[in-house]
Design a binder for these strands. Structure first.
Length: 473
RNA sequence: GUGACCAUGGUGCAACGGUUAGCACAGCGGGUUGUGGUCCCGUUAAUGAGGGUUCGAUUCCCUCUGGUCACCCCA
């Protein structure tokens, strides 16, 4: 029996190459599997390797070795959500395309050219979400959350999709977490949102700078846009082609252009802060006051414009501390979106929030050489010799586990040598060994991996003994 | 979407218009029968895909795919 298992294990990794040793054994080793697909997947006369599917462009596996970073980020974000009273919400990854067109904005790059949209089998035009705020707002309306005590505070975490050319810190499937507060227009909430984003990075040990601006509201923004358009129209010839178009469609975006010609002009451009209406100006001032109060450093950036149409009043981005304005890698961003709920058919509801790019946060973690602690080492490794011993070892493993002890094992191995090798690799403090002899005597061998000392204990007393050794109650 | 560079075993590298395609690490198996972290030996495993040039291509050319970087824009 064991021999057969061994053989099978050996034969398994060689499906690619057939010609060299084309023999019979492989065939009669798989009688139990009648899976017809197995044959299809391993064509007998396969010469070269069978083409293996690859991940799609811009998508990637998050391997076990990477998980510690993701855990670390989550461990920084979740307690903040809990502390500030933001409840977790998960919305579908697939939504009707119209949701994003209406919220993010038809003119935006995201909607214009970056959405994963398709017609589904039912003829519906659907899209993979490029961001989460739209879905959160939809959900808020759908479930009548305006009937709950306001504001409603929500926290989310999940994958987003944008069909862009991959680059450093940019993937087609990427992950964000975010905080949203709906149903209250108080400026202290803008500050709270910014504070949380700031605290998150502080918690991780990443140095960041908050860039902040106000985009006004429907009463004052049009005046500003007119002013801005006027300013640029006079200098139209100096703008890049792109900006000439932008001037008509979305003049705010011209401020964001990095072309030398356009960038030179923006210093002289009228600033929106100067044309804010009383309410917006007041709101902005108060946000800044609160930020001063809670000691969140920020940089007033009159050129900060966000690529989503729904923002009003406060907008902000979090940049790595050492990045300059030309940086294209915001770690996170957000702002107030007082008009969005209404745009999606809800009653007028003020709201604000932010999102953080998790991959980008992890990138910063790595470039700052911050390595999250590795997973906990097992206290005990359970080794066994032979089938009889295996039967005794499994229940013991279970008892130890229930006693709250971190146990590891490799039950499928046969030799003690290889099991000790694994125990060593895992860094376990003790190895419990049960072989033929121990089974007969009703004992267990306890090996102290560091000292190399061994002692024999009654099988029934093993759990108690180990608890004592490990200092467990 | 535009441009530049790149693509060899699981990983990191090497090589040449004519091969046994090398090396290291990892993996697996051994170094006598039940003992790890060192050492020694053996062994598995690769030229991204498809065309073309050529007597011959892993090497040269084209296309595709993917990666990296920049632009665009965003997280």
């Amino acid at each position: 029996m064991p021999a057969k298992v061994k053989k099978y294990a050996k034969a398994k990794p060689a499906p690619k190459k057939a010609p060299p040793k084309e023999q019979a054994p492989a065939a009669d080793q798989q009688p139990p599997m009648a899976d017809p697909n197995a044959a299809a997947m391993m064509p007998r006369p396969a010469t070269r390797g069978v083409a293996t599917p690859q991940t799609l462009r811009g998508m990637k596996d998050i391997l076990p070795s990477e998980q510690k970073y993701w855990l670390h980020v989550r461990d920084a974000a979740e307690p903040l959500a809990a502390a500030y009273g933001y409840d977790r919400i998960d919305t579908p990854i697939l939504e009707e395309t119209g949701l994003f067109v209406r919220s993010v904005g038809k003119q935006t790059d995201i909607v214009e050219k970056e959405m994963f949209s398709f017609i589904d089998a039912g003829g519906e035009n659907v899209s993979l979400r490029p961001e989460a705020t739209a879905s959160i707002v939809r959900s808020y309306i759908n479930h009548g959350m305006f009937n709950q005590p306001q504001p409603v505070k929500l926290f989310y975490w999940g994958p987003m999709f944008r069909h862009e050319r991959p680059q450093s810190g940019r993937f087609r499937e990427f992950h964000q977490f975010g905080f949203e507060v709906l149903g209250d227009k108080h400026p202290v909430l803008d500050a709270e949102i910014i504070l949380i984003a700031h605290l998150f990075f502080k918690e991780l040990g990443i140095k960041t700078a908050v860039q902040i601006n106000s985009l006004g509201c429907p009463t004052c923004r049009p005046t500003y846009l007119a002013e801005l358009t006027n300013y640029y129209r006079a200098k139209r010839s100096q703008l890049c082609e792109n900006c000439k178009r932008r001037l008509l469609k979305n003049p705010l975006r011209v401020l964001d252009c990095k072309e030398a010609g356009c960038a030179a002009l923006k210093d002289g451009a009228p600033q929106i802060v100067d044309s804010l209406c009383e309410e917006c100006k007041n709101h902005f001032m108060r946000v800044l006051e609160y930020l001063d109060e809670i000691q969140v450093p920020y940089v007033l950036n009159p050129h900060l414009v966000r690529g989503l149409d729904y923002y009003t009043k406060t907008v902000f981005e979090i940049w790595p501390a050492d990045e300059t304005e030309s940086s294209q890698s915001a770690l996170g961003g957000g702002g107030r979106y007082d008009g969005l709920v209404e745009v999606l058919g809800g009653r007028p509801t003020p709201a604000c929030g932010f999102a953080i790019g998790i991959e980008r946060a992890i990138l910063q973690l790595k470039s700052a050489n911050i390595e999250p602690s590795v997973r906990n080492k097992p206290d005990i490794f359970m080794a066994q010799l032979g089938d009889v011993a295996r039967r005794k070892v499994v229940p013991l493993f279970e008892e130890l586990r229930k006693a709250g002890i971190n146990v590891a094992s490799s039950f499928s191995k046969d030799s003690l040598k290889s099991q000790l090798e694994i125990a060593n690799r895992l860094g376990s403090r003790y190895t419990l060994i049960i072989g033929q002899k121990e089974v007969l005597d009703g004992t267990v061998l306890i090996r102290d991996m560091e000292a190399g000392m061994q002692e024999i204990v009654d099988y029934n007393r093993a759990v108690g003994e180990m608890k004592k050794k490990l200092g467990r109650p």
